[in-house]
Amino acid sequence: MKQRSLAVLALGASLALAACTQTQSREVAANDASGYPARLPLTGVSLPVEAAPAQPEGGKWQLAGETLSFAVPGGATLLAMNCTHAPDGTAQLHLTRMTRAEDGAKALFALIGNGRIARLPLDATRAGEQGEWQGTMPAADPRLEVLRGGNRIEATLPGGGTLLLPASLEPGRLLAACRASDRA
């Protein structure tokens, strides 16, 4: 009986949320002279961009020096990875995702592939539609195993869209070389 009550409660909450519209999310409720709630439009509030950026067609992995990037040939880089070292010699993988960003934003960059799921912290380092997100983590971090295996990887940044990274052994090779360069 308790499970049925919970199911009914969940259904009711779902229906209540479904009844909300985009217009309602841009309004605030206030009481009119009779004390009855009334909707008032919010002014001076910037509205969020509705759709995440779409991935351009034809993106490929490209290795240039020690940086592995994903981009449409001749186009702007969408994702870049390279190996760096901390002052103590610890090998680190540095990730840069180019997509829109808000000033001071932080997010978890979700990677799904090779039988694994990882959420890697990134910080917005340049705001705007041509924004940039960056994060650095020790190359030995087990979350980075998502890069090994050669299968397709789905990479999602909230509000920045999803990249469908084609199957490649290059991300795993970069990670292995970075781990091997650890001097700590």
Rank of each mutant, 00 (worst) to 15 (best):
L120W: 02
D32C: 08
S69I: 11
N151Q: 15
T84P: 12
G65P: 10
F109P: 03
A7K: 13
S181V: 01
A10E: 03
Q92G: 08
P142I: 08
S5I: 14
L95E: 02
L9N: 10
P56C: 04
A18C: 11
G65F: 11
K60I: 06
G65S: 11
R173P: 06
A176R: 09
C83Y: 03
A38W: 11
T77G: 01
A54M: 09
T67V: 08
P53E: 03
M98Y: 14
R39N: 09
G149S: 01
R173A: 09
E145M: 14
A54V: 08
E145Y: 11
I112H: 10
R126M: 09
D182H: 02
L111S: 06
L147G: 05
A30E: 15
P142M: 08
L6Y: 12
N151P: 10
A51F: 14
L165Y: 02
L11S: 08
S181I: 00
G160F: 00
I117F: 12
Q134V: 07
L111H: 05
D103C: 13
H85E: 08
L147F: 03
F70R: 01
D103M: 15
I117V: 14
A118M: 05
C20Q: 13
A33H: 11
M1N: 15
Q130I: 12
G161D: 07
G59A: 12
S25T: 14
L95P: 00
A105H: 09
L95A: 02
G115K: 03
A19V: 08
R116K: 12
P138H: 11
L147K: 05
A30F: 13
Q92W: 04
T23Q: 15
L165K: 05
E132S: 11
P171V: 02
L164I: 13
T136V: 04
Q24N: 12
R39I: 09
I112G: 07
E170K: 12
G113H: 01
L47K: 08
A140Y: 02
H85W: 05
